[in-house]
Each structure stands twice: as C-alpha cells, then as structure tokens.
Design a protein around this nucleic acid. Sequence first.
DNA 1: CCCTTTCATTTGCATATACAAATAAATTTA
DNA 2: TAAATTTATTTGTATATGCAAATGAAAGGG
Lengths: 144, 144
Amino acid sequence: MNEEEQVLIHCLYFTASRFARNITKLADKTFDFGDLAPSYLYMIMIVKFHPGITQKELCHKLSIAPSTSTRFIDKLEKLKLVTRKMDGKLTFISLTEEGEKVYHQFRVSLKELFNSYARVLGSEFSKDLSKMLHEASNNLERDL
Amino acid sequence: MNEEEQVLIHCLYFTASRFARNITKLADKTFDFGDLAPSYLYMIMIVKFHPGITQKELCHKLSIAPSTSTRFIDKLEKLKLVTRKMDGKLTFISLTEEGEKVYHQFRVSLKELFNSYARVLGSEFSKDLSKMLHEASNNLERDL
DNA sequence: CCCTTTCATTTGCATATACAAATAAATTTA
DNA sequence: TAAATTTATTTGTATATGCAAATGAAAGGG
C-alpha cells in the first residue's frame, strides 16, 4: 500500500465526507418530491416516529445545528407538512395529514434508494456500513 | 428492533449524512489553519500525492462538482498554496513551497484527529469504517 | 478550412449548513 | 421577588456545494 492510500483511506473525515456527497447525489436522483430535498424527508421521518418531538431532540437525532432545524421547520411548516406547538421555551413538532401522506410516499422511495446502492455495494455490506455509521454517530455525540 | 430503527439505521443516506456532519465538526475543532477549512486540506493532500493533477481528476478523487473545484482552487491559489498551469482546455494543479509546508503541518493534525475519534470509536473500528467508505465511494462513482 | 460536436472549466444563482449574537422563557440565587 | 444564570429558539451572516448556463478549447466531418 502506498503512502497516499495509507493517509487518504484511513482518515474518516475524508472518506465520510466524500461518501456523503456520493450518496446524497444518488438520493437527489432517486427522490422526487418537488421542492423537498432529501434531508427534509429525513426530518419528516423522525417526526413521524416521534410525534410532538422537541426541536432540540430533533437536532440531536439529525446532528444538525439548532439554526438549521429552525429553517427546516420553517420550510416544512410553510408547506403545511408539520405543525409547531410552542409552549414556553420549547417547540413541539408534529406531522400534518399532508405530512403523513408524504411520509408514506417517501417510504416507497427509500426502498428504491436502497436497491440502487445495494446493487452496487451489496445488500449486506450496505446494511453493515449503515449500522456502523449510525452507532459511530451516537458514540461521537455522546462522548465528545 | 422497532420500526424506527429498521428504517433509520438501514438508510445509508441518513446515516452517512449525519456521520459526515459529526466528523466534520470534530475536524473543524482539531484543525487550526486560519482560513483553511478541512476540505481544502483534503484537496492539498491529493495535489501533494499527484503533482500536476488535472482539475477533472481532482473532482473525481474528491467527489465534488467541477464548479466547487474551481472555487477551491481559486482560494488556494490566492493563498499561494497551489499553482494553476493552463494548457488548452486542461488545468494542471501543483503545490507551491508554501503549500508543501502546510501539507506537513497538516499531517500532524491528521494524527491528532485520528486519535480523537479512535478514542471514542476504537482504532480498528475506525480503520475498518474508513476503508469501507473509501471503497464504497469508488464503487458508486464507477457504477452509477 | 469552416462547422458542429464534445469536453473542461468558469460563472450565476440557489440551498444546506454552521457559528455567533440576539431574544425569550425558565430556573436559581440572593 | 428581583436579578442573574441557564436553556431553547431565532436571526444575521458566511461558506460549501450543486446545477444549469456560458465560455473556451480541441477534434472530426464535410
């Protein structure tokens, strides 16, 4: 193994950023929800599983900054896909009827996306990789 | 395993994007090169290993769009870290003396970064994950 | 040798995203 | 209870990044 490979392949920052760009490109191609970029769909899904989730909790689950979550929710609210209920300093987010509908379409697209990359990467490899990334994020968020 | 975990954990788009944000946050904290964000250092490293690389080849190795590479090179050139040599429709990029110096400092920071995440994720796990991401990117770029 | 096609790069514009500062609500302290 | 501190969210501003259109250069066909 030459020097380049040692350095480039072993740096998680490099490999993860590059991979994220590649998979985002694929997700963009696969999903077709008009204005909604894939990351909004990720948020919709989390809200679906945690109706009334607080904004802070959303930030944690997505690993995004609070300001980003504000702007995401702004957009989703404008599209009438989620509702905000504010109480004191907390904001609770839930799906609207329309949001539920988008969620169900989205589930179908998710399968398509999985098939696209599984065809190239292999089904087991994809699942393993995904699981590792999930756990690594949780560990980093907890311990740093 | 509940429904949430099945869906969220198995989607590479979600897990990869989130992980990339987490590791970028860590890289930002670890690197301190004034104006230079970590992604510029990635580019510097690739140029170091491939002196006179074309812009197109750089785009491929970083998985970035051509427009992004133009702007990155603009900035690095302004900082006198790389040189452009244009010939016909090709542009060849190389490091300057100053660029070489930054590269060597950078290597030290890279070790630090590795230690930071290896402390949380484990050294072997980190290397495995990184290798998987590297190969997955190459496969996606080739086959899609 | 012009014209069309192709290819690499750049520019214009839009979005995701972050950080820092501002705001606003709740909690603690004196 | 009034003031200070903490916490959650929002706003201002800046950067990374992509796509689509524009530019500029080479290559091929007549």
